[in-house]
Design a binder for these strands. Structure first.
Length: 204
DNA sequence: CGGAAGATCCACT
DNA sequence: GTGGATCTTCCGA
């Protein structure tokens, strides 16, 4: 039995809020060209689906872009933001729920040299440089739209067990970059490991 | 069919 | 702290 044991699909078939909290401390493993890159997840955000104005599934709208979001929990939802960066989500709940967890930041555990290359960093990485934000994280692991809809419970991009982060070590705050979402903008659905340097700005 | 906006990041002042 | 990059997607006309 290896160090990184893949988490089964059933883990994701629960509420986005719960999955977001419990993804902290788990490992995101990426197989690429015979190498293995591993990030420990330190920041997530839950998106609740139809009732959540910040969610791409708001109002139940289902478009070409968001179709993966309406699958059963456990699949990746990857989309392009601002024409330049990709964001990785884990779909949660049951089919057609529209819930998801945005994986916002991680700390490198294996393969940091590859991540550094993927991020086009020349100098020595400072805290947050490698994967301290959703766009950076996807660059570090070479994740793009081609991984949209792929399973996270098997295959070249997957989530594995890891030491659980205690409640007392989790800070909770409003989500980032969703000021347009009205009331939902204030909902406490962002989860970070307390005092972790890789967490993105603004630090809660 | 046009326009606006976006779950971001970086360089610059 | 501010603005620019960059382009797909979506909605309204």
């Amino acid at each position: 039995m290896g160090r990184f044991r893949t988490i089964p699909q059933s883990f994701y078939r629960r509420s986005a809020e719960l999955v977001a909290r419990e993804l902290l401390g788990r490992y995101l493993v990426r197989d690429l060209d015979g190498s293995r890159l591993v990030l420990r997840i330190v920041e997530t955000e839950a998106y609740l689906g139809a009732e959540d104005r910040a969610s791409h599934a708001w109002g139940g709208r289902r478009t070409r872009r968001t179709s993966a979001l309406f699958r059963a929990g456990g699949f990746a939802y990857v989309y392009l933001v601002y024409g330049m960066y990709h964001c990785l989500n884990a779909v949660t709940g049951n089919k057609a729920d529209g819930g998801a967890v945005l994986i916002r930041a991680g700390e490198a555990v294996e393969g940091d040299d590859f991540m550094k290359t993927h991020r086009s960093l020349t100098r020595e990485p400072r805290p947050g440089d490698l994967a301290g934000g959703p766009g950076k994280l996807c660059q570090a692991l070479a994740i793009d739209g081609g991984m949209n809809g792929t399973p996270l419970f098997r295959g070249p991009l997957r989530v594995t067990t890891g030491r659980e982060v205690a409640d007392s070590r989790i800070s909770i705050g409003p989500r980032v970059g969703i000021d347009y979402a009205g009331e939902a903008a204030a909902w406490p659905l962002r989860f970070c490991e307390l005092d972790n340097e890789e967490v993105s700005r603004p630090r809660p």
